[in-house]
Write a protein that binds this DNA or RNA. Structure first.
Lengths: 199, 199
DNA sequence: GGAATTCTTGACCGTTCGGTCCACCATAAG
DNA sequence: CTTATGGTGGACCGAACGGTCAAGAATTCC
C-alpha cells in the first residue's frame, strides 16, 4: 500500500561505482552521483545514507564482484599455472588502455582514503587477505599439477604475485605504454612462475 | 631596497610537502598549509601562486630529492647487487611502519590526481622513466660485477624491480604487518635477483 | 630621517560542497 | 473513489573551500 521504488538498487550501485572509479571519492560530488544514478538527493539519502556510506556500499559490491570473478577465473583454467600467469597479464590486455588507466577501485580507494578512513583501510586489508588466500589455493593446485616447485610456501608466492600485479597496475597508471607494460608483465611472470614443463 | 623575505623557501616547501604527503592533495586545505608553513595566505600566493602550483613545486622538489638519494644509494653500495636488494627491502625497514604507511608521495599523487591532471601524469611518467634508467645502470653494473646474468636486458629488469617495489609499497599501505611485508620483499628479491655467488 | 618598495597579515568574497527538509505525487488497500 | 503510505525531487541551509585585496609593517637607499 505504498509507492514502490522506481529504480534497481544494483543498477544504481554499479553506476555509482563507475563514477567513483573514474573520478575518485573526493572529486565526485553529489550532483555527479545524482546524474549517473538518475535519482534525486532525497532518494539517494533515503536508500543509501550519506555519501560515505553509499561509497562503502559500492566498494563492497565491487570487491565482492571482483572476488567472484577471480574465483571463477582460477577455477576455470585447465591448468592453474595459466591462471596465475593471467593474473599478471590480464589487466593489461585491454589494447586501448582505457580500462587499465583507471586501475583497480580498491587500490585507488586505499591510496585516497586509507590514511584517513579506518573502515576503508580495514576493508582493503580483508580484501587482499582474501585475494591472497584465493591465489594461494591456485598456487597449491599448480604445485600438485607439477607446474611449480613443490617446496615453496603457496601463500608467500601468492603475496609476491599480488605485489607484482599491483605494481604493474600502478605503472600503467603512470601512462607507461602497453607494449612496455606487457613486456614487464611477461618478465615478472617468467621469474616468479618459472616454466617447469621441461622437468 | 625592500623588505627581505622572512622565510626560507626550501623549508616551506618541505613543510608543505609533508602535509600533502600525510593528507593528500584534496584533503589539505589552505589553512593546513598556512599552519605548517607559518605563513599567511597572501604570502603563500605571492611566493608560489595558487594551491596547485604550490603542490607541483613541492612534488618536483620531492622527486628531485628522491632521485638524488637514489643516485647516491646506488653509487655508494660496494656491490651493485646489494643496492638493488635494498630497493625492495629499504622501504620496509622502518620498524614503526610510520614512514611506510604514508608511502611514496609521487605514487600517492599519481593515484589521486593522475586521472585528472595531465601535468601530474606527465611528471609521474618522467619520474619513473628516470628511476628506471638509474636502476638500469645499477643492474648493468651488477652484471659487470658478475652478480647477475649478463644476457638479460638491464632496463627490463629495472622495470620489474620498480614494479615489485611499488607493489610492496602498496601492500604496506593496506596495513599488512611488517613481518609479512619483509618476508614478501625477501621472496621477491630472491626471485628477481638470484644469488649467483656460487657461480 | 624620509621615502620608496616589498613583504605580510587577515578580513572579505563568491562558489561549491554535503546534508536536511518539506511539499508533491504515485501507488495500493479498502 | 478515497485514503494512507512511502518514494521523489528540488529548494534551502550552514560550513568550508580557494582565492583576492587593501592596509599596515619592515627594510634599504638616498
Amino acid at each position: 500500500m505504498a509507492r514502490p521504488r522506481s529504480f534497481d538498487e544494483k543498477q544504481v550501485l554499479n553506476a555509482v561505482r563507475d563514477q567513483f572509479w573514474d573520478a575518485g571519492y573526493a572529486a565526485t560530488s553529489l550532483e555527479d552521483l545524482m546524474q549517473v544514478s538518475g535519482l534525486g538527493k532525497g532518494s539517494l539519502y533515503a536508500a543509501f545514507g550519506d555519501k560515505r556510506q553509499l561509497f562503502l556500499r559500492a566498494l563492497r559490491s565491487y570487491t565482492d564482484d571482483s572476488h567472484g570473478q577471480l574465483r571463477e577465473a582460477l577455477a576455470d583454467a585447465p591448468r592453474a599455472l595459466d591462471a596465475l600467469r593471467m593474473l599478471l597479464e590480464a589487466p593489461i590486455d585491454d589494447p586501448t588502455g582505457a580500462g587499465t588507466r583507471r586501475g583497480c577501485l580498491m587500490a585507488n580507494s586505499t591510496y585516497e582514503l586509507g590514511h584517513a578512513d579506518p573502515e576503508v583501510l580495514d576493508h582493503a586489508h580483508r580484501t587482499y587477505e582474501t585475494s591472497t588466500a584465493l591465489i594461494g589455493d591456485c598456487v597449491a593446485r599448480a604445485q600438485r599439477e607439477g607446474d611449480l616447485p613443490a617446496g615453496a610456501d603457496p601463500i608467500a608466492l601468492a603475496r609476491a604475485l599480488l605485489a607484482a600485479q599491483q605494481g604493474l597496475l600502478f605503472m600503467s597508471r603512470t601512462g607507461l605504454d602497453t607494449a612496455t607494460l606487457t613486456a614487464t608483465a611477461r618478465s615478472l611472470a617468467a621469474q616468479l612462475l618459472p616454466d617447469r614443463s621441461g622437468d
